[in-house]
Each structure stands twice: as structure tokens, then as C-alpha cells.
């Protein structure tokens, strides 16, 4: 399979994630859409890294660090959501404006 088809799949995934991010107001749903975008970005990165043997291992190393950092990011956002749900009893991101200092 040519790399072009992988890039098309990642473009479609990216578009679906952007659609979800634009149209939803629930914080968990926005997080899930952002994770779809993250998966699309990983697929694009590895597809382009696999084109050249000189950059393949570098792409793999960066993707490993990105995946482990995404685990940290998910933990932080989910704890913010749980905290917000405890304080406001809602997951609507528009409520976050009231948290401004």
C-alpha cells in the first residue's frame, strides 16, 4: 500500500475530530474528539517517517514520547472534568468561563 492512502485515512480522521471539537460543548466529548485528532496526527507522522529510512527511527522515538505525554494530558483533563462536575454539577465548557480569576 502506498503511503498516500494512509495519509487520506489520517486526513479523514482529522476532519472528524475537528468536527466533533467544533460542534460539542461537553468537556469529555471535546477531549475524545481531540484524541481522534491526536491519533490522526500520529498516523500522519509515522506515514511520513516511513518514507525515508534515515528518519524512520527518529519518527518512532518522537511518537513514543508523544504517546506517553498524551497519557499525562488525558489524566490532567479528566481530573479537571471530575473537579468541574463536583463543583458545578455540569460538564458544559461554557461554565468554565465562570472559573476565571
Amino acid at each position: 500500500m502506498e503511503v498516500f492512502w494512509y495519509l487520506i485515512v489520517s486526513s479523514i480522521l482529522f476532519a472528524i475530530g475537528v468536527y466533533g471539537l467544533i460542534t460539542k460543548r461537553n468537556i469529555i466529548r471535546m477531549l475524545l474528539s481531540a484524541e481522534v485528532i491526536f491519533n490522526a496526527a500520529l498516523l500522519t507522522f509515522l506515514s511520513l517517517a516511513s518514507l525515508d529510512a534515515a528518519y524512520g527511527a527518529m519518527g518512532g522515538a518522537i511518537v513514543i514520547i508523544a504517546i506517553s505525554l498524551s497519557a499525562a494530558e488525558v489524566g490532567v483533563i479528566v481530573s479537571i472534568a471530575i473537579m468541574m462536575f463536583r463543583m458545578r454539577k455540569t460538564l458544559d465548557v461554557y461554565e468554565l468561563r465562570k472559573f476565571k480569576g
Binding site: M1, E2, L7, I8, S11, I12, A15, V18, L51, D52
Partner: peptide, 22 residues
């Protein structure tokens, strides 16, 4: 906006059409 984004992405990424060699 999503349709326009997809078209732009596919247009930008279309030159990369080699087989993965790694």
C-alpha cells in the same frame, strides 16, 4: 469547514505517494 479542511489536507499530502520502505 471540515470538508474544505479535508480537501486542503489531501491536496497538501498528495505528493507523498511512495511505498513505505522502512
Amino acid at each position: 469547514s471540515v470538508i474544505i479542511l479535508t480537501i486542503i489536507l489531501i491536496k497538501v499530502l498528495s505528493p507523498f505517494s511512495a511505498e513505505p520502505s522502512f
